[in-house]
Amino acid sequence: MTYAIIEASGKQIWVEEGRYYDLNHIPVDPGKSIILGKVLLLNQNGEVTLGHPCIEGVTIKATVMRHLRGKKLTVFKMKPKKKMRLKKGHRQELTRLMIDSIIP
Rank of each mutant, 00 (worst) to 15 (best):
K71C: 09
K83L: 08
K11E: 14
P30N: 12
I5H: 08
E47A: 11
T74Y: 09
L41S: 09
Q92Y: 03
F76L: 02
T63F: 03
I99R: 01
V58F: 08
G10Q: 00
V64I: 14
P53L: 11
K11R: 13
W14M: 14
R85F: 10
P30W: 09
G70K: 12
L68E: 05
I103H: 02
I6P: 07
H52C: 11
A62P: 05
S9W: 00
L23G: 01
R91V: 11
Y21F: 14
R66L: 12
S101Y: 03
A4F: 06
P80F: 11
Y20A: 14
K83P: 01
T59S: 09
R19P: 04
A8G: 02
T74W: 02
R91F: 09
K81D: 12
S33M: 12
V48A: 11
M98L: 15
E47C: 09
N45L: 12
I34L: 14
M98R: 05
K71D: 08
H52K: 15
G10I: 12
D29N: 07
E16V: 09
R19M: 15
T49R: 07
T2K: 04
G37M: 11
I102F: 02
S9Q: 09
K82G: 08
I34R: 00
P27Q: 11
H52A: 15
K38G: 04
R69V: 13
V39L: 13
D29K: 14
Y20S: 15
E56Y: 13
M78I: 10
G31W: 12
A62I: 00
A62R: 00
M78A: 08
Y20H: 15
K71G: 09
K11D: 00
P53C: 14
H52T: 13
M78F: 13
